[in-house]
Nucleic acid binder design. Structure first.
Ligand SMILES: [Zn+2]
Ligand SMILES: [Zn+2]
Ligand SMILES: [Zn+2]
Ligand SMILES: [Zn+2]
Lengths: 141, 141
DNA sequence: ATTTCTTTGAGACTCATTCTCAATAAGGGC
DNA sequence: GCCCTTATTGAGAATGAGTCTCAAAGAAAT
């Protein structure tokens, strides 16, 4: 069994959920691409592969994956949320062009550390963070 | 005329928009509090003051204010967006409790500077940023 | 195989936000 | 002020992402 399938099984088991073909299809579709896609795009891609999975199941499955750190949810400020898998992908945040929607990824260790300090200072146990820079990209300026 | 009224007039003029009593009412309501409120809460507060302004106008006016850096839009991850004025308030970001919804404000110069560096590195002209830390607050742990 | 509990799909539903469009009000010129 | 043009407003309809419902189908347990 593939590493990714293992991972899904493990998480579903931990959550007391069953391993089903639909959940596997959603997970497979999400890890098949490194793009930032919304739920409907993922749903459509699965259908194009000839697999029948409902929109509701796509949303439900993505929720589980997000909760378990396998998928990152991205609010791009306009329109539906986008998603990306986190398998083998190092942590990163995003810089987004408000003109053309282009998304670049960045990661600065120093910022990550400073976030931890802030959480500590305020007595919060940090679970996740959103860090998005919005601006005009080179091509759009 | 008050400083705040001036400010609104200036921005509306710059945008080629007219100064109206409704827009003034929305702006006055927003600057009257330092809380983080959603559009409907702001709408209700205006009505309680006896002023009649429609929900649509509240939304429309907030959009202008956000675009012109007078108001900050806050996506708290669940439910409607919240807003806060930026008059005389130094820039800050937010750390939010995912249990009780409590919101604290923080500001780290070093993070702000690092953001500028990232934007520069990617050739983006930075317009705004979202930086939100989500976790469990002291009381909820 | 039978029972029990979970999952699924189709579509209804929610709810924040946006849109429509006729009625009203600003702002500029006279 | 008064007129004219153009922007704004309000009420409610429309939108759209996401959630919920519930009967049917499927998994696990006995
Ligand atoms: Zn761009
Ligand atoms: Zn990414
Ligand atoms: Zn809390
Ligand atoms: Zn704040």
């Amino acid at each position: 069994m593939s590493k990714n399938k293992e991972k899904l099984k493990k998480v579903l088991h931990k959550e007391g959920l069953r391993f089903t073909s639909q959940r596997e299809a959603v997970w497979n579709e999400i890890i098949s691409s490194d793009e930032h896609r919304n739920a409907d795009e993922i749903y459509m891609a699965i259908r194009l592969n000839g697999v029948l999975v409902s929109r509701a199941t796509v949303y439900r499955t993505i929720d589980v994956l997000v909760k378990n750190n396998m998928v990152r949810k991205l609010d791009v400020g306009v329109g539906p949320s986008k998603f990306e898998h986190k398998m083998n992908a190092p942590h990163h945040d995003h810089i987004i062009c408000i003109q053309c929607g282009r998304i670049e990824e960045f990661m600065v260790n120093q910022i990550e550390d400073l976030q931890d300090s802030v959480a500590k200072e305020y007595g919060f146990k940090l679970v996740r963070h959103i860090h998005q820079l919005f601006g005009i990209c080179k091509d759009c300026q």
